[in-house]
Design a protein around this nucleic acid. Structure first.
Lengths: 166, 166
DNA sequence: TTGCTCATGTCAGTATTCTGACATACAGTG
DNA sequence: CACTGTATGTCAGAATACTGACATGAGCAA
């Protein structure tokens, strides 16, 4: 067994701890990590639908709609009440949301920087490549034959791997 | 920007995906990942208290007690109704729990193996060391000056990093 | 002994997220 | 055109995890 078997536990521990530190960092802003993820993704992909947003941030559509409503109430994001074409309602950051995201990003980046502080550049690269390989290896649903790759995008542009794929 | 900043997202994605695959793998056994974590830890540290168990598995004492009650109802773990000495109730696996854990471990190990399948031994080591460094770097509560290392235990023997430390 | 501190177990209430189900709107095929 | 399939938004309910609070018991100092 040795190390091989406990990388999963290390990932869990790292994620749990990172989440905790990010929550602490964002607390002064009154934002949660989920809120931040949502805002961050809206900057990367403006005008995205709530369903896509949900997949990108690893929650269900239902949860995302609850979160979006909170952010709308606070004036950080905006969404038309009616769709132009289909059913998808394009969601965007407001000016206030943009400012809030700037402030939050600075705090989050500091946490990430701290997390990686003791690693050299090659070590950080190795870590990133290792994680990317893990993600790619788990991207498909176990047995069932799958489309070639299509997934496992660059770190910052992950295509999303929502919990339910329905 | 670059990679440096998105390692956190990669960790989140990897953890989310790993959790999903583990849930799928355990479904035939009627166990959740949380249940598995609990049983696994009880094998590593038999006779542990529920509070310590909670810290080890990243949940609160309250949540752990709910989970333990489920496992007790299913006959997988046992716990005396009264403490010998303090208030802590030593919890242990039953024979049935031991068997269930064996079955679950085989499935979980397969998922982990699949996750790491495309990585060479040195790459896996680099990944594990990188994660361990991240955990160590985040182990302390933000600001406060800290002792050198002290933490960063071996992967499989993590000291625990519960959500609330109270 | 008394008093203080800390850890554990537990109760109650809240918040968040999920599962399940349904209606709507586009894209494709016959 | 009608029909099927897929995707989105939404409602309702249940499960899960959390925060807050309290009582109990051990350890330690005065």
């Amino acid at each position: 067994m040795s190390n091989t078997i406990s990388v999963g536990y290390a990932i869990k521990q790292a994620q749990s701890l990172l989440h905790l530190r990010m929550e602490e960092a964002l607390k002064p802003l009154g934002l949660t990590v989920s809120h931040y993820s949502c805002l961050h993704r809206l900057r990367v992909e403006p005008g995205i639908s709530a369903a896509v947003l949900a997949r990108r941030t690893f929650v269900t559509r239902q949860s995302m709609n609850v979160m979006l409503q909170q952010l709308i109430d606070r004036g950080l994001v905006a969404r038309p009440s009616q769709a132009d074409t289909g059913r998808a309602l394009p969601t965007v950051l407001t000016a206030a949301g943009d400012d809030a995201l700037d402030a939050a990003s600075a705090l989050i980046d500091a946490v990430e920087h701290r997390m990686l502080a003791t690693l050299s550049a090659p070590e950080t690269d190795a870590l990133a490549r290792g994680l990317t390989a893990c993600i790619a290896a788990l991207a498909h649903e176990a047995s069932a034959a799958e489309a070639p790759a299509a997934e496992a995008p660059a770190l910052a542009t992950a295509t999303g791997t929502a919990p339910p794929s329905r």
